[in-house]
Every structure is written in C-alpha cells, then in structure tokens.
C-alpha cells in the first residue's frame, strides 16, 4: 500500500524552524490522536477525552493548537530540535526536510520485528534565509504566519476527506495501530525522521538505506 504524502515547503529564518515545524506537526497530531482507550471486561472499552491548548509562537505571528499532553509535546519538540540543530549548525546545509510518518505494524513470524507499514506522511521542507535587520524580521514573522495559515487550512481539508485510516483494532492489536505509551492521549503510531541535505538526493538516499535495512532485517 502506498502511503499518502503531503509536502509543505517553507522559507524561514533559523530561529523560526522549531515553531514552524511544531505548529504543523502538532496540528496534524491533534487530528490524528484519539482519547485514551480504557478496556473493561468483555472486550468493551471507553474512550477518554482529548484536551487542547493554544500555543503562541515567539518568532512567528502565529498561534496553533496542540493536544494538551506534556509528554507528547516533549517528545515531538525533542525530535524537532535535533533536526533544527542539524539544519542551523555552522556547517548546516541551509535546507532540509522533516517528516511525520504514521504507520501501522504488521506482526511477523518470530524472531523478526513487526513490519512497519506507513499510511500517511507529512513532510515539511525548509529553506533557511538570513535576515539583516529588525524590519525584515518583522516582515518575515508575518509572512511565515500567513504561510502557516494556509498550511493549517490545508491540513483541515485533508483531515476531513474520507481517506484511509487504520481500522479500530481489538484490544490485543491496539499496539499495532496506536501509540499507547502516553498517559493522556492515544495518537496513531508515528515517527519523525529528517534529512538535511538537498531534498532530491535525500529521498533516493533514504530509500536505498531503507531497502538495505529491510533486506538485512529479514
């Protein structure tokens, strides 16, 4: 099965990287999380409630909404900051991309690891620019805010299409679909990956790497 892929391209100043990526990924995760399942006896379960919180950006004229889960926020921010540091480092390439990939697991025969099948990938491609003065920064704050507005509207559009999402699993298979490690929310299984060289090389590179890895793991 081919995963759906959405690609966003943004041009930002170095210090806007974390917030730009977080606003997109948090909005996606907010839509792709459900309340915590609580199983009762006889296989029935109840679904918890997701809270949400407004987040004001410091370096962008923008406010986004995320699940109010500190753990989820911490994990995501950590992944993003690794990418951000690689991108902004002294010998950084000035452009790169980071992906939020939703996948489901498929059980394999022992002793092999379960196979990960991605079903939706959100990619943010960033190009860094250098700004010379506060006026340019002010313009950039607003410009990136406007760009993110478009992206949020697009995310809402995609989320409301009747596209494939994994079926609600039985209790025994819950871990194959959802990330149950969080105490307060239950997002679909996801991982974050990034690359900080020119995007065209990267996609080929990662594909080859992935092929080799997958061959070895069999």
């Amino acid at each position: 099965m081919n995963a759906r892929s959405q690609i966003f391209e943004l041009t930002v100043e170095g210090r806007q990287v974390d917030e730009a990526v977080a606003s997109i990924f948090h909005t996606v995760l907010f839509h792709r999380s459900v309340g915590k399942f609580q199983y009762k006896q006889e296989g029935s379960y109840s679904v918890g409630t997701i809270g949400y919180a407004d987040v004001d950006c410091d370096f962008i004229d923008f406010t986004y909404v995320c699940c109010s889960s500190d753990d989820l926020d911490r994990n995501l921010k950590r992944e993003i900051s690794v990418f951000s540091e690689a991108l902004r480092g002294n010998d950084g390439p000035g452009s790169g991309q980071i992906s939020l990939e939703f996948f489901q697991k498929k059980k394999n025969r022992w002793p092999f690891q379960p196979e990960r099948i991605p079903w939706e990938v959100w990619t943010v491609r960033l190009e860094l620019i250098k700004l010379n003065n506060e006026h340019e920064r002010q313009v950039c704050r607003e410009r990136v805010g406007d760009m993110l507005t478009e992206k949020i509207l697009y995310i809402a559009e995609v989320m409301n299409r009747h596209d494939y999402v994994p079926k609600m699993p039985n209790q025994s298979e819950l871990d194959l679909i959802f990330d149950t490690s969080y105490a307060d929310v239950q997002p679909y299984l996801f991982r974050v990956g990034f690359a900080t060289s020119t995007p065209t090389n990267t996609s080929v590179g990662t594909t080859v790497k992935k092929l080799i890895k997958e061959t070895l793991s069999l």
Binding site: G35, S46, T49, G51, A53, D54, D184
Partner: peptide
C-alpha cells in the same frame, strides 16, 4: 484568552466527541 483544557482518561456525560 488562550484556551487550555485537560485530557481526561474517562469521558463524562458532557464530553461530547471525545474532545474537552
């Protein structure tokens, strides 16, 4: 004002659509 609502492991009667 900024809005913040908490996640709840158990939904109550007013928590429609699993959203606080």
């Amino acid at each position: 004002e900024k809005v913040q609502t908490k996640c709840k492991p158990h939904s109550s009667g007013t928590d429609w659509f699993n959203l606080a």
